[in-house]
Amino acid sequence: MNVAPKPNHLERLNSASNPRWMDALRFLLGLFLFVKGILFLEHNSDVFYLFSSSQRLVSMEKALLFTSMFHIVGGLMIAIGCLTRFAILCQFPIVITAMLVVNPQRGVRLENTELWLSILITGLLVFFMIVGPGRYSVDNKIFRPQLPASEH
């Protein structure tokens, strides 16, 4: 009688068993961050205006460039699921700064959609930090140890 082995604790927590909708949500989150990074480069005059009184111009340009690049590269990494948790960790300082420093300057009101969007994105980043990249990800295909064919 051939009885399948009981999965251990790590196999049960593996993100490869996440539902497909989580993969789609992760992809959309990464795509959103990617687009946000590109828009950040295009609309950098708005950010210059927000910080012009407290920062030097040279340091603002560097901060904008790094922020945009982290969003663009990190968003792509999250979308395809490559080093997902590392990419999420790199997003946290940017999104939390937007949530706690930049967006409240416009007021904590229902009309401040950027603030609510930052809160939502932060929640999604925390969610994917916990549950992992999912079944359809580079992390799952390359970095996850594969079981021999007889154990599937």
Rank of each mutant, 00 (worst) to 15 (best):
G37C: 08
G37H: 04
G37A: 07
G37M: 10
I38P: 07
I38Y: 11
L39P: 00
L39A: 12
L39V: 08
F40A: 04
F40I: 01
F40R: 07
F40W: 11
F40T: 08
F40L: 12
L41V: 02
L41K: 08
L41T: 10
E42K: 15
H43M: 05
N44P: 00
N44V: 00
S45C: 02
S45H: 12
D46F: 01
D46S: 10
V47A: 10
V47M: 15
F48G: 15
Y49I: 11
Y49L: 13
L50S: 10
F51I: 13
F51V: 13
F51M: 09
S53M: 12
S53G: 15
S54H: 06
S54A: 15
S54E: 13
R56Y: 15
L57C: 03
L57P: 01
L57D: 13
V58I: 15
S59V: 09
S59G: 10
S59H: 05
S59A: 14
M60F: 05
M60S: 09
M60L: 15
E61Y: 08
E61R: 11
E61W: 05
K62D: 11
K62W: 14
K62C: 10
A63R: 04
A63T: 13
A63N: 14
L64K: 02
L64S: 08
L65S: 01
L65M: 11
F66W: 10
T67M: 03
T67F: 00
T67I: 00
T67C: 11
T67V: 02
T67W: 04
S68K: 09
M69I: 12
H71P: 00
H71A: 07
I72N: 11
I72W: 09
I72H: 07
I72A: 08
V73E: 00
V73S: 01
G74L: 05
G74S: 02
G74T: 12
G74V: 07
G75R: 02
G75H: 02
G75V: 02
L76N: 12
L76A: 11
M77K: 13
I78H: 06
I78P: 13
I78Q: 10
I78M: 03
I78A: 04
I78N: 10
A79N: 09
A79R: 08
I80G: 05
I80L: 03
G81W: 08
G81S: 06
C82F: 15
L83S: 12
T84W: 07
R85Y: 06
F86N: 05
F86M: 13
A87M: 01
A87K: 01
A87R: 06
A87E: 01
A87W: 02
I88Y: 08
I88N: 03
I88V: 09
L89D: 00
L89K: 05
C90L: 05
C90A: 14
F92H: 04
F92P: 04
F92R: 01
F92Y: 07
F92S: 08
P93K: 07
I94H: 03
I94V: 08
I94N: 07
I94L: 07
V95W: 05
V95S: 04
V95F: 01
V95M: 06
V95C: 01
I96W: 06
I96F: 13
T97N: 14
T97H: 06
T97Q: 05
T97A: 11
T97C: 03
A98F: 00
M99T: 14
M99E: 11
L100V: 07
V101D: 14
V102I: 14
V102S: 13
N103Y: 12
N103A: 06
